[in-house]
């Protein structure tokens, strides 16, 4: 009930964010049951208008949002696409956090050579623009979902490493870690029991932001044709496949593009609120 009370006092933007996120989660969990048609089912002519945005006096449309370039139902593709796009981004972010947090804590606790080596590797990787790095690897290995997840998780882990290391370094300088060292505790114990529990809340907000980044990144790669490959439904690819329609005045590609934009805005709004509510009130004099 504490959480409900907090939600109640949340600003409008956060409430909207939570609403949008909830709809997405429902789509992810129950896609086959909510979607009116199957993922690859052809239901009409290519780019047939739907109820939304149909010209006046047109024949009664059979779908809500119309059809895509192959005549598949856009709404169903969006719902299945939510599942693919979000789950892949979530998995990637989780892997990137596992790697980043482990290495970050290790660098902060071990200091010395381990820290130097890890930090320099990360410096070099971050000196390389992420998109370019990813494109190069995809050029060599070809685009498949495991390669995509692996490459992005590794690149993103560098950011997580930096943040974890900074948070852990601050904690590490605290006397309670010194006490544990003086007691003779192992590196593993210090990482797990002294540092990690205190690093969780600053990293939680970061998870939201990194998820947004990864999600947009995959969408971007899919959009340029190097991400998730057809026939898997995915929002970024949907924009790409139907991009040509916009020149004919058909707004269909804006639906998946909006879905992407809405989800990232929603997560950002929630993170904004979470950060503001944990850092306390600030009323300026």
């Amino acid at each position: 009930m504490n959480i409900l009370g907090k939600l109640n006092r949340a600003p409008l933007s956060a409430k909207i964010g939570i609403g949008i996120l909830a709809i997405n989660v429902i789509c992810v969990l129950f896609a086959p049951w909510i979607a009116p048609y199957a993922e690859g089912q052809v239901v009409g002519d290519p780019w047939a208008p739907g109820l939304v945005g149909a010209p006046e006096g047109d024949l009664a449309p059979t779908t809500l949002l119309g059809t895509d370039h192959l005549g598949r139902d856009v709404l169903s593709r969006l719902i299945f696409g939510a599942r693919n796009s979000i789950l892949i981004a979530l998995l990637t972010t989780t892997i990137s956090f596992s790697i980043g947090i482990t290495c970050g804590l290790l660098a902060a606790t071990m200091r010395g050579t381990v820290d130097q080596v890890l930090s320099r590797i990360v410096d070099v990787m971050m000196g390389f623009p992420t998109l370019i790095f990813a494109l190069m690897v995809l050029a060599i290995l070809g685009s498949s979902i495991p390669v995509l997840i692996g490459v992005i998780a590794l690149l993103d882990a560098t950011r997580v490493f930096r943040i974890t290391r900074a948070v852990a370094m601050d904690l590490e300088a605290q006397d309670f870690v010194e006490v544990a060292r003086l007691r003779g505790e192992s590196i593993g114990w210090i990482m797990r029991r002294e540092l990690l529990p205190n690093a969780v809340s600053p990293l939680a907000a970061e998870f939201g932001l990194r998820f947004c980044f990864v999600f947009l990144f995959i969408a971007t790669l899919s959009f340029v044709g190097l991400g998730i490959q057809p026939p898997t439904a995915d929002w970024g690819s949907m924009v790409r496949e139907n991009a040509a329609a916009i020149s004919f005045g058909i707004l269909m590609p804006l639906f998946p593009a909006s879905a992407i934009a809405l989800l990232t805005v929603a997560v950002n709004m929630i993170v904004d609120w979470a950060v503001a509510s944990t850092s306390g009130v600030r009323n300026d004099n």
């Binding site: 605290q174 006397d175 309670f176 006490v179 060292r181 003086l182 007691r183 205190n198």
Partner: peptide
């Protein structure tokens, strides 16, 4: 400190200036 035995560490304890910083908040 890493070369000292558990027994040597045990016999020599330390209390710090700031109790806030020397207790893990969790």
């Amino acid at each position: 400190v890493k070369d000292r035995s558990k027994e040597q560490l045990r016999r020599l304890q330390m209390i710090h200036q700031s109790p806030d910083a020397s207790l893990n908040p969790r």
